[in-house]
Design a binder for these strands. Sequence first.
DNA 1: AGACCACATATTGTCGACAAAATAGTTTGT
DNA 2: ACAAACTATTTTGTCGACAATATGTGGTCT
Lengths: 218, 218
Amino acid sequence: MHLANEKPVTAADKTFILLRDDIVEGRIVAGSKLSETELSTKYAVSRAIIREAINRLEACHIVERKANVGARVVALSPQGLIELYQVRESLEGMAARLAAVNMTHEEIDDLMGLLQSHFDEVKDGQSYYQEAGDVDFHYRIILGSKNKHLISMLFDGIYHLVRMYRVQLGMAGPRVTTAYDEHKHIVKAIANRDAELAEMLMRRHIMYSKNSIEAKLS
Amino acid sequence: MHLANEKPVTAADKTFILLRDDIVEGRIVAGSKLSETELSTKYAVSRAIIREAINRLEACHIVERKANVGARVVALSPQGLIELYQVRESLEGMAARLAAVNMTHEEIDDLMGLLQSHFDEVKDGQSYYQEAGDVDFHYRIILGSKNKHLISMLFDGIYHLVRMYRVQLGMAGPRVTTAYDEHKHIVKAIANRDAELAEMLMRRHIMYSKNSIEAKLS
DNA sequence: AGACCACATATTGTCGACAAAATAGTTTGT
DNA sequence: ACAAACTATTTTGTCGACAATATGTGGTCT
């Protein structure tokens, strides 16, 4: 899934996105070494481009690099996933808090509409309430915070890592049924401009999600 | 101030740190354009090195870059500072929460010792309880969270930006007298392994700090 | 046999040159 | 005089080659 604000114009941009998606979607396996020359032939660009792409991936914590040795895709561990969710709980909680203050009425209406369409799908037994819908929901609240740093940290960093874990550890989408109610309550809190409650509900929502994933791991 | 874990080995590392500090300390003014050729002569390295340094600074949100146009140091605004503190409140609150669970007894003892030495200095009227001490305090709690993402986001990203604001907007160190009590209460909560309280106190501590800075701005 | 050293190989780091794009300046037309 | 188009210049993006560092191999000595 590509975020809207990513418009790759330069070759380095495109290669960065290609390489990132190849890693996140598991076509390049976690923990493997990234050879610059190898990748430069694979993507048909110069080594300089590959180096820039790897540097950006390092900033996202998707790869780790040691000087004069090389870069590896990060290794996945249950501990790492837990740490990721701790950060997510913290940041998205604040995002919900800020969204309750900063979202416009139109944005809130749109969000309610989105939720309603999810509800219809679930009711129809399509059970299409998969990752895409969940991401879209969180996406809007994060944007609704209107906080640049928050938005960038979550979209450019955390979310790709979370997806990488989901894909490579073979988790399906998030919990379907209960999550809908949680989403509904969060939106209600935002609509009521109850920042405190919105943050608390979002944090609990993410904690539940984390627990659900932890349970599947063990 | 250099963080301990930064060991610049390659020329790009060194240039990155030099350039970053020149920006953060205000020797390169906020909002100004960064010419690659100009910088390459200034730091006596090739353009490739400068490009890598600028790329890393972009990842830290210290510079913004537009494709085929160039990079500028970010512009400072009161709104930007507020957003920064919102993120800080969120992340450091979580750090304090985790520190209450994950810090060892030794680390907590060290932290108490640090606090005591600060108290002595303040009591002696040295009033040396300046930024260095404050940063050191927060530094240890963040490390105490044992959460890699949290640590990296705060040290590599937020803290340099916060310092950049402090320097360029001409703020002295943080509030001296009251901050000591707040620090003391936070440490006490951590020592009691009261994660909930530690987070709440840390968030309030940072909110106060933000309010104090906002007051100076207006 | 195991440890240490020297050499060969491969990979990363750095550089200068060329290509492409944007900006600035000049000319031309009305 | 103003605007538009074209040219020139500057700046960024990309590339291939060279230098420096790390890794792997073979040999020698104890």
